[in-house]
Amino acid sequence: MAGNSLFCHFRIEGPKHLSTSETRRPTLMVIHAHPDDEASQTGGTLARYAAAGFRTVLVTCTDGRQGNGVDGCKPGHRDHRPEQIAARRSHELAMSKVALGISDLVQLDYPDSGMPESANDTDPRAFSRLEGEPITLQLEALMRKYQPDVVVTYPPNGLSNHPDHVRTHELTVAAFGRIRKAGGLPAGRDGETGPERRMPKLYYIALSVSRLKAARTRAEATLGPGIWTPPLEIGVDDDSITTAVNISGFWAHKLRALAAHASQADASALLRVLNVTGQENPVEEYILADPPWSGGEQESDLFQGIVGGS
């Protein structure tokens, strides 16, 4: 069980020591709340940059223990076993990592908060209720370790207002702010402490209303009216989207990663929809948060303006 102390239950899968050639690769760090979020929201992006030779670092903040148990049982059911569920979801995450070609997987393993107002939402040990300072320090340390050029996380509302998503946003932004206050990261990305510094770019995951509507229309036409699709309420105005990453060459990778999370009903429902809606011009959308968007033509590359961009 993860606690409040720094680096408690801190698991890293990937190279333990960073060689000069490794650290000089352009690096994308994506910070998510739960296992399966990486596939549903950023799977194509992770796969695209991994295939291009970039270093891709995935951080998951919780262990997912409040997800579906055996036969889909929910928290509070007598057959719901949080420890077993966390172990299974870790295994599924490992399979997703392979499907997406992720370089490094860091699991902070804090207890999943579950949905708001659920029976388990009162657990004081849950990620969204823990003291933020130790976790902010963890995330700051990870940014210093991997020295990303781009950091991706949720927008302020966490996309869905899930407390773990919102908390992940808050703590990631706090850690990013400390990097900024310190003057950035070493410009050489090789651990040297020379005078030249740089700041990573910070992006928020986004879904445009127009694409959500189009996906709903295609899903209902193929699977019938009433089929579950991502709610329009999580969408943002199209004009808010600053960056659209084309993942047409990596759609299959995204679907394989999502299929790896077979124990979770939400992942399975989304997979069913994406199987019939995502083949036409698939993109994953983002909002550039730092540096602030100055307008102009929409980006197609998270690394635009950075040496080594794809």
Results as ranks from 00 to 15, higher is better:
residue 1 M to P: 09
residue 2 A to I: 01
residue 2 A to C: 05
residue 5 S to K: 15
residue 7 F to V: 08
residue 8 C to G: 14
residue 8 C to E: 14
residue 12 I to M: 13
residue 14 G to K: 09
residue 14 G to S: 12
residue 16 K to A: 15
residue 18 L to T: 09
residue 22 E to P: 09
residue 28 L to P: 03
residue 31 I to C: 05
residue 32 H to Y: 01
residue 33 A to Q: 03
residue 34 H to Y: 05
residue 36 D to H: 08
residue 36 D to C: 10
residue 37 D to N: 06
residue 38 E to I: 00
residue 40 S to C: 12
residue 42 T to V: 11
residue 43 G to P: 05
residue 44 G to R: 05
residue 45 T to D: 04
residue 51 A to M: 07
residue 58 L to M: 15
residue 67 G to R: 06
residue 70 V to Y: 12
residue 72 G to A: 05
residue 74 K to R: 13
residue 76 G to C: 06
residue 80 H to Y: 00
residue 80 H to K: 04
residue 82 P to D: 03
residue 84 Q to P: 05
residue 85 I to Q: 00
residue 91 H to T: 12
residue 95 M to Y: 06
residue 100 L to T: 01
residue 108 L to H: 03
residue 112 D to P: 00
residue 116 P to K: 08
residue 116 P to R: 11
residue 117 E to L: 10
residue 119 A to W: 02
residue 126 A to C: 12
residue 129 R to A: 00
residue 142 L to A: 04
residue 143 M to Y: 03
residue 143 M to T: 00
residue 149 D to F: 02
residue 150 V to M: 06
residue 150 V to R: 10
residue 151 V to M: 01
residue 152 V to D: 00
residue 152 V to N: 01
residue 152 V to L: 02
residue 167 R to H: 03
residue 169 H to Y: 10
residue 169 H to P: 03
residue 169 H to L: 01
residue 172 T to W: 00
residue 176 F to I: 04
residue 190 D to T: 11
residue 191 G to L: 10
residue 198 R to P: 02
residue 210 S to M: 06
residue 213 K to R: 15
residue 217 T to D: 14
residue 222 T to H: 13
residue 224 G to E: 05
residue 224 G to Q: 08
residue 227 I to W: 04
residue 229 T to A: 12
residue 247 I to L: 09
residue 250 F to L: 07
residue 255 L to T: 06
residue 256 R to E: 14
residue 260 A to N: 08
residue 262 A to F: 13
residue 263 S to G: 05
residue 266 D to V: 10
residue 267 A to E: 05
residue 269 A to G: 10
residue 271 L to N: 06
residue 271 L to Q: 04
residue 272 R to E: 10
residue 273 V to D: 01
residue 275 N to G: 13
residue 275 N to Q: 15
residue 280 E to Y: 10
residue 280 E to L: 10
residue 281 N to H: 12
residue 282 P to E: 03
residue 287 I to R: 13
residue 291 P to I: 10
residue 293 W to S: 07
residue 299 E to D: 14
residue 302 L to G: 06
residue 304 Q to S: 15
residue 304 Q to E: 14
residue 306 I to G: 00
